[in-house]
Amino acid sequence: MAYVDLIREIHTATERDYLSRVTSHDKAVSSEVAKRFGSDYFDGERRYGYGGYRYDGRWKRFAAAIAAHYELQAGARVLDVGCAKGFLVHDLRTVAGSNATGVDVSRYAIEHAFPEAREHVSVADAVELPFEDSSFDLVVSINTLHNLRLPDLERALQEIERVGTGHSYIVVDGYRTGREKMNLMYWQLTCECFFSPEEWDWLFAQVGYTGDYACVFFE
């Protein structure tokens, strides 16, 4: 297992007003709505989630970085757990030339997936992936697993281990300082688990996750 930061460029490209997240609206209500992972979360107002984010190619460089780091060959089998509307799936297929597929627990996201990715994504729960053992050369999960409560997080990590062939890469929320922890708590809407990198390392060791990971930090 290694800490591999391929996400920082994308994460830091977005400006965030942490205080307004909790002062402009009732954040408890916003969080309750967001956790339904429906139309409000994906295509509603920013206070509920994405704020209607449309495909703009921002994941292309990330897909290329993944392909380069893991030396993906053309046709490599890649699974994106928590693929949302399939933007990264699309870029892993077109930029990296992989045979990428994705799953997401949100039926709304899959039904409204990016048209070019729609046939490659489906509804499934991370805690029970509908694939045979060792089905994928690489399994990725970006900004998804921290939305699970601890028992389900353990099962999801073990499922990633099961369906992969030894290579996996996940991105989860984390913090290194008190300020980063507070900013994370201000900003997040759907998190159930967020830890320091040292705590994530400990958890991975406990559940047997051997893949790579990175944390998103709210600086």
Rank of each mutant, 00 (worst) to 15 (best):
M1L: 09
A2F: 02
E9D: 14
I10F: 10
I10V: 13
E15S: 10
S20K: 15
V22P: 01
V22G: 06
V22F: 04
T23L: 15
D26L: 03
K27Y: 01
K27I: 10
E32M: 00
E32Y: 10
K35N: 15
Y41I: 05
G44V: 04
R46V: 13
Y48G: 02
G52L: 03
R58I: 06
F62V: 10
F62I: 07
A63V: 01
A64K: 13
I66Q: 04
I66F: 05
I66P: 07
I66H: 03
A68P: 02
E71A: 15
C83Q: 00
A84P: 06
F87W: 06
F87S: 04
L88A: 06
L88R: 02
D91M: 03
L92R: 05
R93A: 11
N99C: 08
N99S: 14
A100D: 06
V103K: 01
D104R: 04
S106H: 10
A109K: 01
I110R: 00
E111K: 02
F114K: 04
E116Y: 08
E116W: 09
A117T: 13
R118S: 15
E119G: 01
S122Q: 12
S122E: 08
V127D: 07
E128T: 13
L129Y: 05
P130L: 09
P130Y: 12
S134C: 09
D137S: 05
S141W: 00
S141K: 07
N143A: 15
L148S: 09
L153F: 09
R155N: 08
L157G: 02
E159F: 04
R162D: 00
R162I: 03
T165I: 07
S168L: 03
V172M: 05
Y175C: 13
Y175M: 05
W187C: 08
Q188D: 15
Q188G: 05
T190Q: 10
C191W: 10
C193E: 15
F194V: 10
F195E: 11
E199M: 13
W200F: 09
W200I: 02
W202E: 15
L203C: 13
A205I: 00
Y209P: 01
G211C: 09
A214G: 11
A214M: 03
C215M: 13
V216L: 07
V216T: 12
